[in-house]
């Protein structure tokens, strides 16, 4: 694997870590399986891209992309809480609707941003070569978001949010409206995902309606990989693990794509298959481990 591929994988791991934080927030903190992310990632890219093309400041476009993501999350949460649609189904409905909406926003299925100003151009005065600058900027953003999220999850509102995922009956009887907490959490999650989408579009130079396919599985794989790292007791560790999981996931993918296995050479289009297999392995390792222990014990007797 070349240095170029390695740096590229780190860059992707860092920018998609924002999305992984969002997935961590819904899947782990809120216990709300949310597939909206497959739609809100390209939504962020579409909003940011369409606004830049129309001459908006790239930073401001990212802010509006986050607002759009939050709105998408809000729709899913409203479908789930107010209309009592199962959370998984509610998010699939929003995701499907977003496909059409994203094409509407861009005016066509994809949008190039080449020769358009991006946040990376705006920060190029630092003077580093691009292949180093981009990951460093992404690192700064992800650390900033992690710290803010950690702080938020320790406020009164944040603890109420965590309690909603842990024990809704308990927190309702403490006077917290759990529906509001779900709306808040899912919106926040999708704002992060849309921010990731916007940044991906700006760094890759294009937004595409299909770029969100498989996002949720990649996010989940990253969260689970992160959890396999030691110590997931505190919120600080959990968010750190989510980021490390994202890096680990992208590196694994890069390695898998750069080697030839016998006659088989994997291509980027095999990514979703690899991800699916990776998730299954991650999920079954604990089971296999206990089976192995039992088997060894049986052998010993």
């Amino acid at each position: 694997m070349s240095l170029y591929i390695l740096v590229g994988a780190v860059e992707q791991g860092l920018v998609y870590a924002l999305m992984v934080l969002g997935v961590y927030l819904t899947f782990r903190v809120l216990d709300f399986p949310d597939l909206t992310v497959d739609g809100s990632l390209p939504l962020g890219a579409a909003v940011s891209g369409a606004l830049i093309v129309r001459g908006m400041d790239p930073f401001l476009s990212l802010l509006l992309a986050m607002c759009a993501g939050a709105a998408a999350g809000c729709v899913t949460a409203l479908l789930a809480t107010r209309l009592r649609i199962m959370s998984l189904l509610a998010s699939i409905i929003t995701m499907t609707a977003l496909y059409s909406i994203n094409i509407r926003i861009m005016g066509r299925p994809n949008l190039t941003l080449l020769n358009q100003p991006t946040v990376l151009d705006a920060l190029s005065f630092i003077g580093l070569p691009r292949y180093l600058l981009t990951p460093l900027i992404f690192l700064g953003i992800i650390i900033g978001c992690k710290v803010l999220l950690d702080l938020f999850l320790h406020t009164q509102l944040g603890t109420a949010l965590r309690a909603t995922g842990d024990n809704p009956q308990m927190i309702r009887s403490q006077g917290v409206n759990t529906d509001m907490m779900v709306i808040l959490g899912v919106s926040l999650s999708n704002a992060l995902v849309a921010l990731a989408g916007g940044l991906v579009a700006q760094s890759q130079g294009f937004a595409d309606v299909g770029m969100g396919i498989g996002t949720i599985v990649a996010g989940l794989a990253s969260v689970i990989l992160g959890e396999s790292l030691v110590g997931a007791q505190t919120v600080f560790r959990q968010t750190l693990n989510a980021i490390c999981g994202s890096l680990l996931y992208r590196l694994t993918i890069a390695v898998a794509l750069s080697y030839r296995v016998g006659f088989l050479r994997l291509t980027p289009s095999d990514l979703n298959l690899i991800t699916a297999v990776l998730v299954v392995i991650c999920l079954t390792v604990p089971l296999l481990r206990t089976r192995l222990v039992m088997w060894k014990r049986a052998q010993g007797d």
Partner: peptide, 23 residues
Amino acid sequence: TCATMSVEENFALASRRGLRPGF
């Protein structure tokens, strides 16, 4: 009680029973 949260966090939630959570 919330199993994944600490004793003090559970207490803090209860100490604000019926109040709007803030920042």
